[in-house]
Design a protein around this nucleic acid. Structure first.
Lengths: 222, 222
DNA sequence: GTCTATAGCCCGATAGAC
DNA sequence: GTCTATCGGGCTATAGAC
C-alpha cells in the first residue's frame, strides 16, 4: 500500500502527437465531468476546452460513455494510501496518522471525491470503479482495525475496545465529515477540521487505558 | 416541532377531477425523480406512468423545473422532527431517542433522502429547499446539544463534555452511517444498525460521569 | 489523426381542436 | 382539462475530405 503512481508525467515530450492529444482529451474530460457532472458536459464542451473537434474525441473513444469510463480511471489514479513508515509510531499516533491522511486526501481531491460520491449516491458508476472504491474503503478500515488491535494487545488501549466496530465507526464518521462539506454554508470554513480534531480527542478519551495507578476521576478535568 | 402532517390523504374522493390529476402527476414525478434523478426522468416518462399526456403536465406546471420544485415540496413534507414527550426521559435516553428517530427517518424515507443527498452533492437544489434541509439539520443538532448540556449541568455527564462539538460529531457520524448505506454491498443488511448501536455505546462510555464513589479501573470490564 | 458537415434522435415546449 | 400534432434546439454519432 505504498506510493506507486507519479512517474509518467515527465516523459510526455517523447510521446507521439496522437497519444498526447488523447491524453489532453482525457484529462480535460476528467476535469469537466468532475466539475459539472456527466449530463451537463456535452462532448462539444470537452472538445472546445481540449482544442479538438467533437469527431476526434469519438475517434479516440468509441462513445461518450467510453470516454467517461476512461476519465474515471484517471480520476481514481491518486487513490492510494501512503503510509510510509507508520510502523515506527505508537498505536495512537498510527491512528491519528491514518485519520489525517484520509482527511488530507479528501481535502486535496475535492472534485473527484465529489464525483465518486455522486456516483455512489446514484448507483450509476461502472462496477469496476465502484469495487475499486470499495476496496480502498476496506483496506483503510482494516489498517485502522489492526492498529486498534495492536493497541489493545499492547495494553495501551482498554481491553474492551472492539477493533472491527471501532474502526468502522471512525471511518463512518470521517465519511460524515466529508459529507458535511457538501451541506455547510459557504461562510464556515474550518468546521471539518474542528470535527476531525474532536473525533480524535473523543476517540482516545474512550479507548486509551487508564494509567495503571490512577485514582477515580483522574481525567475529570480537561 | 411536533407532528403536523397526515390528513389530506383521506379526502381525495371529494376533490374535483383536475386537482386529483394534478396530484397524481405530482406524486408520480416525486417518485420518479427520487428513483432515477431529474436528468434521467423525461416528461414523457412521467406522463406515461401518470396516464396523462406530456402536454397536460405542462398545462398544470409551467415547465419541467416548475414540476421539479413542486415535487420537491411534496418530498420534504414528512421532514419534521417528532419529539413527543421527550422531556420525561433522562438525558441519556433523550439522546438515544434523538439518534433513533434520525435513523428511523432515513430508513423509512430512503428514496427522498437519496434525492436530497444527490442535490446536496451536486449543489443543484433550489435555495429554498436546501435552506429548509439545513434548518432541519441545525434544529436536530441543537436538540442534541441541549440534551447534552442538561446532562452536564445535572451531573449525569462528565463536566468536560462539549455540548456543541459533541452534538455536531454525533450528527456527522449519523450522516456517515447514512452514506454507508449507499456504499455497502447488497449482502450486508444490518451494518448500519450495528454502527448506530456502537455509536450510542461509545458515546455514553465517554460522556457519562463515573459513579461518585468508584475506584480506578471500575469499568475495565465489559 | 484531425477536421467540417450533417444525419438522426430525443426532449421540452407550443398550437390548437375538443 | 385533456388531447394530438408538431416545432425548434441540442445532443451523440457517422461520413468523408484532407
Amino acid at each position: 500500500m505504498a506510493a506507486s503512481v507519479a512517474v509518467e508525467e515527465l516523459v510526455n515530450e517523447a510521446l507521439p502527437q496522437g497519444i498526447r492529444t488523447r491524453d489532453r482529451i482525457l484529462s480535460t474530460a476528467a476535469r469537466l465531468f468532475s466539475q459539472k457532472g456527466y449530463e451537463h458536459t456535452p462532448l462539444s464542451h470537452v472538445a472546445r476546452e481540449a482544442n479538438v473537434s467533437k469527431a476526434l474525441i469519438l475517434w479516440h473513444f468509441e462513445s461518450k460513455e467510453d470516454l467517461f469510463r476512461a476519465a474515471l480511471g484517471r480520476t481514481l489514479e491518486p487513490y492510494y494510501i501512503d503510509m510510509g513508515d507508520i510502523g515506527s509510531l505508537d498505536e495512537q499516533n498510527q491512528i491519528e496518522t491514518l485519520i489525517d491522511s484520509y482527511f488530507k486526501f479528501v481535502r486535496e481531491n475535492g472534485y473527484s471525491v465529489r464525483f465518486i460520491v455522486d456516483l455512489m449516491v446514484r448507483e450509476s458508476g461502472p462496477d469496476e470503479v465502484m469495487s475499486h472504491v470499495h476496496e480502498l474503503y476496506v483496506v483503510f478500515r482494516n489498517l485502522l482495525a489492526e492498529a486498534i488491535d495492536r493497541g489493545r494487545l499492547s495494553g495501551r488501549f482498554r481491553p474492551d475496545v472492539e477493533p472491527e466496530l471501532d474502526a468502522a465507526l471512525i471511518v463512518t464518521t470521517l465519511d460524515g465529515i466529508l459529507m458535511e462539506r457538501f451541506l455547510s454554508e459557504k461562510g464556515r470554513p474550518t468546521t471539518a477540521e474542528n470535527l476531525v480534531e474532536h473525533l480524535k480527542k473523543t476517540t482516545f478519551l474512550r479507548m486509551l487505558a487508564e494509567p495503571a495507578a490512577s485514582k477515580a476521576g483522574a481525567n475529570d478535568v480537561l
